[in-house]
Design a protein around this nucleic acid. Structure first.
Lengths: 251, 251
DNA sequence: CGTTTCGTTGAAGAGTGTCAAGGCCAGTGG
DNA sequence: CCACTGGCCTTGACACTCTTCAACGAAACG
C-alpha cells in the first residue's frame, strides 16, 4: 500500500513532535525531558486489522505505544479458554506483560488498522537510569495498569450483566472523550463476542442487553455504532440503583 | 507486647540477611547487588490481625514486602461494592497500586498477625537509578503482578464456579509449597466470604463447593483446615474435563 | 453473488444467588 | 465452670439471572 513500506516501517519517531504527548509516555514531562525521550529510538509499525502486534509466547523485546487504531489483548489457555483482558487505544502502552518472564503472556491484535511506536525495552532501562522523570513516569504507567485491572476484577467479580455492560460503555465513552472524540457517539471496534469475553458474558447476553438499553432509551445501537443518549441512566445502573422506569415492563 | 516497641518498629532491616532473599525483591541478584539493596533502609512493621497496612485513599509513600503472615487487598466503591483483588504471603510485594496516583487505590488488611518491610518509594527511585539489577527486577515484579491479574480476569471471566474454586485452591497450594510449607495441607486464613469475593461467588456457593469437593474425595475440609487429597482431580476440573465419577449422581 | 461472519431474538434449562434456619466455635462475663 | 454472644460456616428450598441451543436476518468479503 506504500510506495516504500520498509522505509516507512523503520521511520525514526520523535515524541517531541508527536501529537499524543499529552496522553502517552511523555505525559507530565518537560520539553527537555521529552527530547531525551526521543532517544528511545522508537520505530513505527503498522498493524493491519486482524493481525497480531505480538503473540503469547513471543520473545519480549519492546513495549508499544499505540499511535492510532484500536487493539485487544487476549490470554488463552492450552485448553482453549480465552479471555480478552483489555482494549487499547491511542496513547496507551501495551506489552508490559512481557517484562516479567521475557516472553509475552498475552496476544495483542489489531481490531482496525493500527499503528504503534515500538520502544525497545533495553532502551527504556538505559534511559530510565539517566532520566528520573521517565523512570518515575514509567512506574506510574505500570501502576495504573494494575489499578485498571483491579477495576476489571471488580466488574467481573461483583457486578450483574447489566451493570457490567453499562460500566464498559461508560469506560469506552470516557476514553474516547479523553482523545477528543465524541463521548456520546462512537463505533464499537470489537465484536459482541469480544465485548462478552471482556466483561464475562456470552455474546447473546451482550446483544440482548444492548437491545434492552436501547428499548429503555439509554442509547441507540445500530450494528457497531453506539449513541449514548442517557449517560446518567447508565451511571445509575452501574451504581446499582437501577432506574425504576423498567419495573412495569416485565421481561 | 514488646519491651520497646518503638525501637523494634524502627529496626533497620538488611535484605542480605533476610531468609526471604529467594522470594522477595533480591531474587536473582548477586551478593553485592543485594548489599546495595540494604540501603533501601526498609523498616519493619507489625500488623495485627484485622488491621490495615494501608487504606484506599491513604497517601502513597512506601511499598511493602511481606515478611510474615497473610494479607488481603480489597477495592471498594462508594456504593459499597467490594472486591478482594488478592491475597498476599511472605516474599510478595504490595502497595504498587499507589504509585500511579500518589494515593493507594485499595486497602490491604492483615488476615493474621503479619510483618512487613516498608520500603520508601523515593528510595526505590533513587537506588534504581544506580542499580540496574534492582531497576530491572522491580519492573519484573510489577509486570508479574499485571500477568497475575490477567490470570484472575481469566478465572472470573470464563470459568464456572467449580473451576474457579479448584483453581484458587491449587494456586494457594502452589504458593504454600514455594514457601516450604505443605502443598497438600494448609489453613485458609480468609473467610468463605473473602474467598467468594475474590473468585466472584457468594459465600454459600463456596461452602457448598468445598463440601462437594470433599464428598467427591478431592479434598478434606475441616473449618479452615484443608487437605488436598487429589490435586490431579482438581487440575482436571480447572482444565474443564471434569472427572466422570460424579456424572452418575445428578444434582 | 454466494459465502462467511456477525448480530438478533426466542424458548428452555442449568447454574448461582437469595433467603432462612440451624450448628459450630472462640471469646466474654457471670 | 457455664451460659451467652456473635461471627463463621453449612445446608435446604426456591427464585432468577444468564447460558445454551437454535433459527434467522444483516452485513462484510472475496
Amino acid at each position: 500500500m506504500n510506495a516504500d513500506p520498509v522505509a516507512f516501517d523503520r521511520l525514526r519517531v520523535a515524541c517531541s513532535n508527536c501529537n499524543l504527548r499529552e496522553l502517552c509516555l511523555p505525559l507530565g514531562m518537560s520539553r527537555g525531558e521529552i527530547e531525551q525521550l526521543d532517544t528511545l529510538v522508537a520505530t513505527r509499525r503498522k498493524i493491519p486489522r486482524g493481525e497480531a502486534l505480538f503473540r503469547s509466547g513471543d520473545e519480549f523485546v519492546s513495549l508499544y505505544a499505540v499511535r492510532l487504531g484500536f487493539l485487544k489483548s487476549v490470554v488463552l489457555t492450552p485448553e482453549g479458554r480465552e479471555q480478552v483482558t483489555g482494549f487499547h487505544m491511542a496513547g496507551e502502552l501495551v506489552g508490559m506483560d512481557g517484562i516479567g518472564g521475557g516472553r509475552h503472556a498475552c496476544s495483542t491484535v489489531a481490531l482496525e488498522d493500527s499503528e504503534v511506536c515500538a520502544i525497545p525495552y533495553t532502551r527504556i532501562e538505559e534511559v530510565s537510569a539517566k532520566v528520573p522523570a521517565l523512570r518515575n513516569h514509567f512506574h506510574r504507567v505500570m501502576s495504573r495498569e494494575i489499578v485498571r485491572e483491579h477495576g476489571v476484577m471488580l466488574l467481573l467479580g461483583s457486578m450483574s450483566a447489566e451493570e457490567r455492560l453499562a460500566a464498559f460503555l461508560l469506560n469506552l465513552s470516557q476514553r474516547f472523550e479523553a482523545r477528543g472524540y465524541s463521548r456520546s457517539e462512537f463505533v464499537l471496534r470489537m465484536t459482541r463476542a469480544e465485548i462478552g469475553s471482556f466483561v464475562g458474558l456470552k455474546l447473546e447476553t451482550v446483544s440482548r442487553l444492548l437491545s434492552r438499553f436501547a428499548a429503555d432509551g439509554l442509547l441507540e445501537v445500530n450494528q457497531k455504532n453506539v449513541h449514548i443518549v442517557d449517560p446518567a441512566g447508565l451511571r445509575k445502573i452501574v451504581s446499582g440503583q437501577e432506574s425504576e422506569c423498567r419495573q412495569d415492563k416485565p421481561h
